[in-house]
Design a protein around this nucleic acid. Structure first.
Lengths: 157, 157
DNA sequence: ACAAGTATCTTGCTGAGCGAGATAATAGAG
DNA sequence: CTCTATTATCTCGCTCAGCAAGATACTTGT
């Protein structure tokens, strides 16, 4: 009876007990996004601005300088959008533009310390909570969480 | 010596082995966001449109009707933005507007079956991959993953 | 020294989302 | 039953993030 094709498509997933966790992961991803959007709005920023600051801090932690071009590429913006983004962040005092001394076409972006502190004040409690949860786990449980997240990371490319 | 205050703020987190997993979770959240943005762009939609379709499908799965107002509230849009969003989705054929018969002020939004199928074709493989990963776990490992995600969900409000 | 290449910025535009208010339908008081 | 308050959606005019195209400034290879 091919008269319910829609239903077949809707109910395609294997409805095992795994699906609960899959939906949980999605809910967490959505909520983390909301959390960071709220942070943006409270500080008069846009979601992209927060993503930019996070990208900049990640690079800084890895010991890499970030140029305007790098930043734009990481966020999927074109050059005009990148310039506007950096203008915005600079005007708000969250970053500084520094002309590269060796290649003077380049502009490296440095995050202001106060922006870092602001980020910690908002995301710190969440990170602490996560660390608390994980400290209660033994090595096999940690491996399970790590393995699941690592697997999802590879799958989501 | 208080001449390195910036550093103190930057390195505030307890640098235990938990931090690796915290960063993993954030990376997964970001990548899932990117995945859904790519889906949006490939189909000529905006991230908000995808979020709207997901919200609509979630409600439908829970057996609830979604009105324009509900949808806007769920996405944090005002009424003008909501109207524009539904216009866009309707123009693209992803949803239908249906005037509620009992309260004729209300407009309920119905997702078109083809939009659902389109979503599955993109997110299905990812979901399958997640289910595969989880099927290899025993009950205690599943409980660990579930507990961590549930805890983060409560913390991220 | 000069052509080709690379990094950023400028200009002009499109469109998502907002604030304010219009329109239409329901609910409650008398 | 009618008049007013409330609720749900839509319309209008605007702001601003991001795009496409091209200008500008610097570097590199010949």
């Amino acid at each position: 009876m091919p008269d319910q094709e829609g239903e077949v498509l809707v109910e395609r997933a294997a409805p095992g007990p795994e699906m609960e966790i899959v939906h949980l992961l999605r809910a967490v991803a959505v909520d983390l996004g909301r959390h960071s959007t709220r942070f943006a709005q409270r500080n008069g920023m846009h979601p992209t601005d927060v993503r930019a600051l996070i990208a900049l801090m990640d690079a800084a932690r890895a010991g890499e300088e970030t140029t305007a071009g790098h930043l734009g590429a990481a966020l999927g913006l074109n050059s005009a959008g990148t310039t506007a983004l950096v203008d915005r962040l600079e005007r708000a005092g969250h970053v500084r533009r520094v002309r590269d001394a060796r290649d003077r076409r380049k502009v490296t972006i440095e995050v202001d310390e106060r922006a870092v502190a602001l980020g910690w004040s908002h995301f710190g409690p969440l990170i602490d909570r996560a660390a608390d949860l994980l400290r209660a786990y033994d090595e096999r449980e940690l491996a399970a969480v790590r393995g699941f997240l690592t697997g999802m990371l590879k799958a989501a490319v």
